[in-house]
Structure formats: structure tokens, C-alpha cells
């Protein structure tokens, strides 16, 4: 086999420079700044800052509200990840079996992929409008007095629903292509061994989909943690009030609404550590047990 290579040492470095510069300017530099300002208390206008050591972190650890938000974020992430993966897998398996009109089905299922999170949130606002939203009326017809923005659990339900709705198409596309890459021979062999479709799915298809599923798991966790920001901001109409919120939204509320840069920086450092832990977990613990083909 022929190996491609560079004749000089400097050319590859030169070619890497733009990418490295972007990472340094847009990631490392702000990250260092965030870590630095998390140890200070700053006047919003930047006239002065006082070194407060780990006070900002201690305040977070002692804040019952922050822990409540962390707990909500965890539940929210688990629900969004579970339902968007589960529904997408179900739809992909069913769509994979469809022969007639397959293309139209698939297109319709992927459609929502193009919707931006704030737009998805806005659609949620319309669907759950307090006085005439169709989904509010549906809930009322089964005796659930659904009140977006009033009741904590109702608002949380709407957030999960909209977030799942927005994410299912992405997962669907990946699962479907994962299914289609399973060799026909393997499926036919399985068909001879096991007549139960459910049994075949769990014994053969599901393990073969594991690499795709694992990749999607990580993507979905980061989606639920970070990318749902637009949905949450739209659904609470920019007024946090007694509404549920995630850790990322809290960073925004304290830093950009409340102008408390020190406290907000400490929160974003906490999130950075969380992402770091997630990445280590991804590569160290799970990656080894899954075989990519």
C-alpha cells in the first residue's frame, strides 16, 4: 500500500495553522478568559474588578436554586435524549421496511431537520398558546388544564416535547443510513435462525447499530445540554420567572440579563468541566466496548 506523505516538516504545520488559529482565538482564548473572570467580581461596565478567590464557586455550591436547576437539567437531558433516540429508531426501523413510497415518507420525516431551534420554540409557543393553542386544547379535552409559562411541569413538558420533535429527524437520518449499511447477507442469515422480528432486531440489528447509536447518544446529550437554548428562551419568552431552565440558560440569565460576569463565568467553567468529563467518558469507557466496522 502506498502511503501519502509530505516531503517537508513545515508544510503540514502551515496547512494546520488556519484551523489551529481558529480554535485558539474562538475557543482557548475565551475559555482562559472565562476561567480568569470566574475568580473575580466585576463591575458591569468594567471599571473595576475584585479578586474573590473561589467565592463564585462556593456561592454556586451553596445555592439551592442552582442545584435545582442542575437537577432539572439532568432530568431534561435524560428525557430528551431517550425519547429522541427511541422515537427516531422506531421510525427508522419502520421506514426501512417500507417499499412503496419510501422516498416520500423519508423526506417527510427528515423535514423538521431544517427548522432552527428558536423557530421550533416559536412553533411550540403557537401550539401551546394559553387561550387558543391546538395542543393546549387537546390537553384540556382529556382533562389536563395545560398552562404554558404558569405551571412548572407543563412548561417543562412543552420544552421536552419541542426539543424531541426538533431532534428526531437528525437521529432518524443517521439510524436509517445505519440500518441500510447492514449487509443483506447478515439479515437473511438471521431470518433463517430466528423467526421473531423483535428477536432479530435485538440480537442482530441493534448490536450492529451500536456505533451509530453511541455516536448519536453523545450528540444528543450535547444537544439537550446546549443547543436547546433557543427553544427554552423562546418558550419562556425571555422571562425566566418560575419557569424551568437549564444550566446553559442560567449562564445567559446571570451574565447577559443580570450583568453578573463573575458568577456567570464560574457557571460556564462548571459546564466546561462537564463537557470535558463527558468527552473522557466517551473515549475511555464506552469507545472500547463498541466495535466499529
Amino acid at each position: 500500500m502506498k502511503r501519502a506523505g509530505f516531503s517537508t516538516r513545515w508544510l503540514p504545520i502551515l496547512l494546520l495553522v488556519p484551523q489551529l488559529a481558529i480554535i485558539a482565538i474562538f475557543f482557548y482564548w475565551p475559555a482562559v478568559h472565562a476561567v480568569q473572570s470566574s475568580f473575580y467580581l466585576q463591575d458591569p461596565f468594567g471599571f473595576g474588578s475584585t479578586y474573590v478567590g473561589v467565592d463564585n464557586y462556593a456561592d454556586l455550591a451553596n445555592s439551592g436554586e442552582y442545584l435545582k436547576i442542575a437537577r432539572f437539567t439532568l432530568i431534561f437531558t435524560v428525557l430528551v435524549t431517550f425519547f429522541s433516540l427511541g422515537l427516531a429508531l422506531l421510525l427508522a426501523v419502520k421506514a426501512d421496511n417500507v417499499i412503496r413510497g419510501a422516498r416520500s415518507y423519508r423526506t417527510l420525516l427528515m423535514w423538521v431537520y431544517a427548522v432552527a431551534p428558536p423557530v421550533a420554540g416559536f412553533i411550540g409557543l403557537i401550539m401551546f398558546n394559553q387561550s387558543w393553542g391546538p395542543l393546549t386544547e387537546l390537553a384540556r379535552s382529556v382533562g389536563w388544564d395545560f398552562k404554558l409559562g404558569v405551571n412548572f411541569n407543563d412548561t417543562a413538558t412543552a420544552m421536552v416535547l419541542v426539543s424531541v420533535w426538533k431532534q428526531v429527524p437528525v437521529n432518524f437520518i443517521f439510524f436509517l443510513s445505519g440500518l441500510q449499511s447492514i449487509p443483506k447477507a447478515v439479515r437473511e442469515a438471521a431470518l433463517i435462525d430466528n423467526r421473531s422480528a423483535t428477536g432479530r432486531f435485538w440480537d442482530v440489528t441493534f448490536p450492529l447499530l451500536a456505533p451509530t447509536g453511541f455516536f448519536l447518544l453523545i450528540i444528543n446529550i450535547t444537544y439537550a445540554l446546549f443547543d436547546t437554548f433557543g427553544i427554552i428562551d423562546t418558550l419562556v419568552k425571555g422571562e425566566p420567572g418560575n419557569n424551568p431552565m437549564t444550566l446553559v440558560y442560567k449562564v445567559y440569565v446571570d451574565g447577559f440579563r443580570g450583568n453578573d460576569l463573575g458568577g456567570s463565568s464560574a457557571q460556564s467553567v462548571v459546564l466546561m468541566v462537564l463537557v470535558l468529563a463527558l468527552t473522557v467518558f466517551q473515549f475511555r469507557l464506552i469507545e472500547r466496548r463498541i466495535h466499529y466496522t
Binding site: S131, G149, G241, N242
Partner: peptide
């Protein structure tokens, strides 16, 4: 009707 201004005015 919630924290939003308009939801209470409507």
C-alpha cells in the same frame, strides 16, 4: 397567566 406581560393583558 405567567410572568410574561402580554399573557396577562390578553
Amino acid at each position: 397567566f405567567g410572568t410574561g406581560w402580554g399573557d396577562n393583558q390578553t
